[in-house]
Every structure is written in structure tokens, then in C-alpha cells.
Amino acid sequence: MADPGGEREVRLVVNGVERVAAAEPRLLLSDFLRHRLGLTGTHVGCEHGVCGACTVLLDGEPVRSCLVFAVQAEGAELRTVEGLAGEDGELGPVQRAFHEAHGMQCGFCTPGFLISLTALLEERPGASEEELVDALSGNLCRCTGYANILAAARAARDQAAERA
């Protein structure tokens, strides 16, 4: 690496599409996605790892994109909220569950919740109540009081368990 502090190209796959953009080392992955790649569905609420609004799937695992430098995602495969709909463009099952259970109000936290829940259900389609709470308590929502988010999560879990 010629200049360890300078901008370099970061190449990664986001929602199945290869993307390349420049980043200096300190550029947070959240900013890279939002402002370099224009994927503004991933939100930023705290930039210190607590609120979960910035959660994305990095090589299949849910991570805080505000705690990852874009350069660390070189070569990685990412999924963001923009990649959750089905191939046909229809909302995915987790998205539908949030709509049907009124699991969202302002919707600012929603992408993070959708990703956290997707990650859990992909790993454990029949996740227990405890696992649901564990996964969702890593995301903050200030509007809904969580009751409907939990209801949406249970509905999505039941569907996922059925499919599995």
C-alpha cells in the first residue's frame, strides 16, 4: 500500500451488485453506503454502536456499519434494506410482517430492525422468544414501544419456521 492514510478504491458486492468507490481509511461504512453509493436506506442514529439503525448484513452477519471502516469491507458481500425485497420486487416476508403488524411509525429505525431480524431468521428460522428479544434488543426504536415490532417478529418467525 503506497499511502496508508490516503484514499483507495474499495470494491465490494452490495445486494448482489459489484460496487467500487473511493474511501479514505477513516470513512465509516455507514457513510460509504449512504453517501458514496447512494444507499440511504441504511440510517445513522448514534455512530457509537448502540441504536442499531445502521445495521447491515456483512458476509451474512448483522453488523453495525457505523463501527466498521469502509476499507475493512473490501471484498465483502453486503446486504442492506434495499436488498430485502424479493426478485420480483415484492416486499420480503420480514418487511410484510412489519407492515401488517404496524411495527413501524416514523420508519427511521425500521431498516435496522429488518436487517437484524432477517439475520436471525436466516440462521434460526424457528427462533425462540428469547432469541427474538436478544436480536431485537440490539436496535432502538423511540416510536413504537416495541410491542408491534415483537408481534411482527413473531409473525415473521412463524412463517420462516413453516418454510424451513
Binding site: T55, E61, P62, V68, S116, S137
Partner: peptide
């Protein structure tokens, strides 16, 4: 923490 923290 949470799964989203333990993942890294």
C-alpha cells in the same frame, strides 16, 4: 452486548 456486536 447484542448479536450485532458479537458478530464482530
Amino acid at each position: 452486548g447484542h448479536p450485532q456486536v458479537r458478530s464482530r
